[in-house]
Design a protein around this nucleic acid. Sequence first.
RNA 1: GCCGAGAUGGCGGAAUUGGUAGACGCAGCGGAUUCAAAAUCCGCCGGCAGCAAUGUCUUGGGGGUUCAAGUCCCCCUCUCGGUACCA
Length: 831
Amino acid sequence: MEERYNPLEIESEAQQYWDSNQVFAAKEDEQKEKFYCLSMFPYPSGKLHMGHVRNYTIGDVISRYQRMQGKSVLQPMGWDAFGLPAENAAIKNKVAPAEWTYKNMDEMRGQLQRLGYGYDWSREMATCRPEYYRWEQWMFTRLLKKGMVYKKSAVVNWDPVDQTVLANEQVIDGRGWRSGALVEKREIPQWFMKITDYADELLEGLDKLDGWPEAVRTMQANWIGRSEGLELQFGAVDGGESLTVFTTRPDTLMGVTYVAVAAEHPLAVKAAESNPDIVLFLDECSKMETSEAALETMEKKGMDLGVTVTHPVSGDDIPVWVANFVLMGYGTGAVMAVPAHDQRDWEFATKYGVDIKAVIRSVQNAESDESSDVSEAAYTEKGVLYNSAQFDGMNFEQARDAIADYLEEQQLGKRKINYRLRDWGVSRQRYWGCPIPIVNCPTCGAVPVPEEQLPVVLPEDVKFDGVGSPIKKMPEFYQTSCPECGRDAERETDTFDTFMESSWYYTRYSCSDQSEKMLDSRVDYWAPVDQYVGGVEHAILHLLYARFYHKLLRDEGLLNSDEPFKNLLTQGMVLKDGVKMSKSKGNTVDPQPLIERYGADTVRLFIMFAAPPEQSLEWSDSGVEGAYRFIKRIWRLVYAHIEGSSPVDSVVVAGLRESSELTDEQKDIRRITHQTIKKVGDDVGRRLTFNTAIAAVMELTNALSKFGSDSDELILNRAVMQESLEAVTLLLSPMVPHLTHRLWSLLGHKQAVVDVAWPEYDENALIEDSINMVVQVNGKLRAQLKVSASASREDIESQAVAEESVVKFLDGKVPIKVIVVPGKLVNLVVK
RNA sequence: GCCGAGAUGGCGGAAUUGGUAGACGCAGCGGAUUCAAAAUCCGCCGGCAGCAAUGUCUUGGGGGUUCAAGUCCCCCUCUCGGUACCA
């Protein structure tokens, strides 16, 4: 054995062993329990960053641990290869998006391999390959025929200078990021998937996802936003339009003093015809950002349209306003306003001098004649109705039902369940994405591309200048004939949202070599994913779309499970100096030089040690140095143990479990060793707190350093040491697989550590004769107590009150209460 | 704005079910080894008071529940993630 730890030599040897023995090739072995461990696949952006290293190390540790549990493990890797950054890079570096993407994949694949992750590389996929996206196109055409897909117009950010649709992140303070031009809203026809048809199932399914963080389930439930309410009509006045609105507070109906519509609403457009001020206002609204955050935080503005509608109960004329915070695309494009009982409406009404009519008062004031005080703010509590004609005196539930009954009878409204969730718009006016398999025929309309003509291949050899998508200017791409009537027609040149690819990739890993169909029976061996690992930033969109798509696949008969991801671990970000690492801030740490200097094991160990996976992780160069020291310390411990003598035979080590000849010191070491095995098993297997697992092994090695410095002439000492060092090796092997691959062999084993079972602790070694307890007086720590493990409550109590410092603080008084927490503490309460 | 999460020594973090706050590591200080350095080993290491024993304060801020609160409840501040075309 070399005295010096040499990571480069050790790591390349271990990796060669795994590779030449196909150790991580996943097999559909029906005799074994399967475990599908998946880390979110990366966007091939260039090089790996620390966030990737963290994500993939967590996944690899879990995979290797599960393998040691005897399971048949699948841990695949691939590339989320379509997306906006490739287009940006293309503009910047004058290189085609495809070429840039493939180059990055090669670079990053090499880095992943250098880090020693146990992937089944034979299943690698890239979503930009036609072999992959053809099935996505195929599925889309199936869904279209089924009616799960439809076309409608929706707004996009339009850059009038670059003549391009901008992503929300490309709009900065209302301007295009490159041109600086004021962004305009533009309505264009787009494809949508009916995720709202699955809203209830997606919501109810959350209850069963007990392997998911509660926070993620809550966020998804709030995102879906199921609410029960009433949809009702405000009637048309002399030839105008009637308006439909939805409300969850029908009890406030009699307090409506105006109705607000979106700028694109027909009523607003019509009113503008005769009022230039309204034209100006609508024009202002068309230069707004489309993101929800921008909408909610901007100044709320509106204008009286000078038209009225009829209140469905009172028959009063209700003025119609146009407001910038009402959106045409969501709901009915109109809302009823109750300034007395809704804070946003109150602020709007106060600002523009619209009437405020209070109709709800608190239950306490129900019998009085007092009005609710709405002079400073809206009264938003549920209460009792007044000023509400036949509904006076009713509480919320009574009024809700009575008003719903009344309006349904009058055919002016109906009970409705509403969702905040909106249908999924999947069209993108971009080049670097999966072509939408549709032919637009002047005669037949939108026709799906027939199965035998799939895939519609995206041309990769293009010039990309950032002004529109190249395929929109390529007749050789878009000119085609209609699959139905055979006449000249044009292909759809929009591409899919990239969430489309990431919504089903985890199923395709089960059969990535299958060229005849989207999925085969192997998907039901592997799916669902047992452990999914990725950033918390995907808590809503990606994870909700994937859950939706899984149900679509199920309902197409392609697989047999309801949910894609059984357990979910949402990992925190990697920070430097307290802020997120990013190129723009110039605070990134490149893993490559660290791997070259310290080896992959040190980098893996540090990133697992520095913080629990769900928390953000503060990067520390000196912390890496510490991880390296720890590895070298283990190396020296093993070196000292075996140098000059051979490893202790495994029969002798096993005999320790039955031995009655151990000294107290030997028993102590065995107790610490087996406590550590127990704790690390729990930390790695159940809690997924790898940082505390590593800390526990550090404590064990600290104890071993002291133990080992004593005479080790005795065979029992050497046996205890051997047992402990083997435990250290096995417990750390998921985190530092290369080091432990070598150590296990040095400790005298023929079998590779990767094939060894996770260790089991010896219950008998854990038993302690005496226990330390603390004594408190009035909750304050006053003494330490060593009591026998079998001591009774009375023994402990009498020992406690006899302690010198306890006597001092009791000050002659007799405790009025004594709390004994077994094995922990005694609390004496005095007055 | 809304939804979700977080805040503990000089720093990263630990405390798993309400029961010894600060495990483990980093940095720092002192010592050993060395011609010297690196590497390594040993010791100390939250604030205040004290020679010390020890006392006292302390988990973002304010209130509360409890024999006992970092942990539970209420209010507030700040930071981070998401907010439907970044992935």
